Simulated scan of single mutants.
Amino acid sequence: MKTLSKKFNFKFIAICISLLVVGSCQNASYKEDFAMETVAITESYQAVDGSEATGTVANTPVQLKIIKSASARYKVEDVKKATAQVKEMAQKYDGYISDLRFENNSYEKQNRFTIKVPNTHFDALLDSIASVSIFTEFENITTQDVTEEYLDLESRLATKQEVKERYEDILRKNAKTVEDILATEEKLRILQEEIEAAQGRLKYLSNKVSYSTVQVDLFETVEYKEEPESYTKLFLDKAGSGFNFGWELIEAIVVGLLHIWPLLIIITLVIMFLRRKMKKK
């Protein structure tokens, strides 16, 4: 009996130890799997974040320098009224009218003017002007990309300014003789002219980019009337012409007498002298 109880106790202990070992192994494998999963998530996040950052830097666009211009012709009901409305629109969008020309003939009245407007308001102004028309004859929009020229000028300008600074440093420290001073000053003069030319071109391009040009033609049709081949004056017209002629004749006589006043005085004196002689006789 004792032998059997010992065997039973040994088996029971062995089974408990086996269960403990299995349980510990499962816990250990669960922990390892959790750690591996955490590492995988971290690496994946870092990879995505790095790729997004790289893509953002690579896709950063250069600020484009675009010159916009447009020309359009619109039919309106009243040219004068439509012109006043367009002027108000230009002021609303911080623009101004740089040129205006009015034409009137037997077929139509036309107002042609040029508007300078900030580049950001270019499209809005065109849409607003089109809203006052009853018919759009044409609209032409053109763009000119000067980004490459602008960046090239900026790069050249920076280089020339650096060279100018070096020449100025040479002039202050190393130029000893008159020949060296004159040669350095000549180089500086040429560089200054090139720098001013580049700055002027950059300023011109900046103004063209900042302010777009819109040329607008507003016109209204009028009823055609043929000009008469001959014109007959009415009585009032003839009376007015006669009155004007009479007044002009009086003016001419008075002006003519004023021109010959010395002769009139001499004639008057001669007549008075002759009359006295005749009285004495």
Rank of each mutant, 00 (worst) to 15 (best):
T3A: 15
K6E: 08
N9T: 02
A14F: 07
S18C: 07
G23K: 11
A35Y: 09
T38P: 04
A40G: 05
A40F: 05
I41K: 09
T42A: 09
Y45M: 10
Y45S: 14
Y45K: 15
V48G: 04
V48D: 13
D49N: 10
G50W: 10
S51V: 05
T54V: 06
T54F: 04
G55L: 13
V57N: 11
A58W: 03
N59D: 00
T60M: 12
P61K: 07
P61Y: 12
P61A: 01
P61V: 00
V62M: 14
L64H: 15
K68W: 04
S69V: 01
E77H: 06
D78M: 03
K80D: 12
A90N: 09
A90C: 11
K92I: 04
S98W: 03
D99V: 02
R101I: 08
N104S: 03
N105Y: 00
S106C: 05
N111Q: 10
F113W: 00
V117E: 01
H121Q: 14
F122S: 04
A124H: 08
A124F: 07
S128P: 01
I129E: 03
A130Q: 13
V132L: 07
V132A: 09
V132H: 00
S133I: 01
S133W: 00
S133T: 05
I134S: 05
E137V: 03
E139H: 07
I141D: 04
E148P: 06
L153Q: 14
E154Y: 13
T159Q: 14
E162R: 08
E162L: 15
K164D: 06
D169Q: 15
E179A: 14
D180H: 14
E185H: 01
I190P: 08
E193Y: 12
E193G: 09
L202I: 02
L202R: 01
L202W: 00
L205K: 07
N207L: 12
T213C: 05
F219E: 01
T221S: 07
T221L: 11
Y224R: 06
Y224S: 01
E226R: 08
P228G: 00
P228E: 00
S230I: 15
T232H: 10
T232Q: 14
F235W: 08
L236R: 13
A239V: 03
A239N: 10
F245Q: 14
W247L: 15
V255I: 11
G256R: 13
I265E: 13
I266P: 11
I267H: 11
T268R: 14
M272P: 04
F273G: 10
R275V: 09
K277M: 09
K280T: 15
K280Q: 15
